[in-house]
Amino acid sequence: MTRTNLMIGAIGAVAVTALGLNIATLSASIEEPVVAADLPAPPVDGALGDIDRETLQAEMRRYLLENPDIIVEVIDVLEAQRTANAQLAEQQMLRETNDVLLNDGYSFVGGNPDGDVTLVEFLDYQCTFCKRAHDEVAALLSSDGNIRLIVKELPILGPVSETATRAALSVLAEQGEEIYEVFNDQMMSFPGQLNDEMIDRLAERSGADVAAMRANMDSREIDAQIAQNRALAEQLQITGTPTFVLGDTFIRGYLPADQMAEAVRLTRSTMR
């Protein structure tokens, strides 16, 4: 929700409150709070009773012009409430998906597998910001040896992205984590657009058996892994890459290594 929408909502909230007040109350000082339970019942069927509509509107306008800070206060409350509600909703989503998010049995696990903090990354090999984040994540893992990294392959940028994902998952399943990690780095570090020929070349450069990789790319196992990652992303309302999950917090988009390190520090502080 934009701040403009919040302002409209705030004005509406003040207006609704004002409709339940008489003119004398509206003229009172802003320091005199009005308790909702003490307000008279709202008008029925839009009727204003003895209060003239034009007089009420003019009084409301005067009141807001004389006390503009009340709009800012209401906006701040609404923003804080919206943020808190969003955080609670995200935490609930993560609780519901915890097992498949952290222990699906097929995703690459890097960094320190026994680290005290887990960072989950949803990525696409064609994503420019994923490529930027790749070096930042590497720097973070290098500077902090107590982070467990889980990579979730999420091809969302077309057929080439899916081919690259299938190649990566095939290498991981059949040829092991060490070759996968090099292959992942090669594709993420490649500066241009990937295609079938380049994917094979980067796989070979990584030490992978390209023929074996190709033989397994369209298997039911790989189909199921991609489908599960997509279903998980949908459940977590992830619509773009890179998206990170750190503890019970989402980091949606690219973040420099120093800011990610600060996020890790804050996550650890909540675990104590």
Rank of each mutant, 00 (worst) to 15 (best):
M1N: 05
T4W: 03
M7S: 03
G9P: 00
A10S: 15
G12T: 00
A13L: 11
V16D: 11
T17K: 06
N22Y: 03
I23L: 13
S27M: 11
A28D: 14
I30P: 13
P33A: 10
V34S: 08
A41G: 08
A41Q: 10
A41D: 11
P42K: 00
R53T: 05
Q57H: 09
R61A: 12
R62S: 10
R62L: 04
L64N: 13
L65G: 08
E66T: 07
D69A: 15
I71P: 11
V72K: 12
V72T: 11
V74K: 10
V74P: 01
I75V: 14
I75P: 04
I75R: 05
D76N: 11
L78R: 04
L78Y: 05
E79C: 04
E79G: 09
A80R: 12
Q81W: 00
Q81K: 06
Q81S: 15
T83D: 12
Q87G: 14
A89F: 07
A89D: 15
Q92L: 14
M93K: 14
L94A: 07
N98W: 08
L102H: 10
D104L: 13
Y106M: 04
V109S: 09
V109N: 08
G111N: 03
G111I: 05
P113V: 07
P113L: 03
D114N: 12
G115T: 08
D116C: 00
V117T: 07
L119R: 00
E121D: 12
F122D: 09
D124N: 07
Q126E: 13
C130V: 03
K131Q: 06
A133H: 05
V137N: 03
A138W: 05
A139K: 11
L140N: 02
L141D: 01
D144F: 00
I147T: 02
L149W: 05
E153M: 10
L154W: 05
I156C: 14
G158S: 06
V160H: 01
S161G: 13
A164P: 05
T165L: 05
T165I: 02
R166H: 10
A167G: 09
A167N: 12
A168H: 11
A168E: 07
L169G: 09
S170W: 01
S170Q: 11
V171I: 15
A173K: 04
A173P: 06
E174L: 04
G176I: 15
G176E: 10
I179C: 06
I179T: 07
I179A: 06
E181G: 01
F183I: 02
Q186F: 11
M187H: 04
M188L: 02
P191D: 09
G192A: 14
Q193G: 13
I199Q: 02
D200F: 08
D200A: 13
E204K: 14
E204R: 15
S206K: 15
A211E: 15
M217N: 02
E221W: 01
Q225M: 15
Q225S: 08
A227H: 06
A231K: 03
Q235P: 05
Q237R: 13
T241F: 09
T243K: 05
F244P: 03
G247P: 05
D248S: 12
I251L: 14
G253W: 10
L255E: 06
L255S: 12
D258E: 14
A261L: 09
T267Y: 06
R268F: 00
T270Q: 06
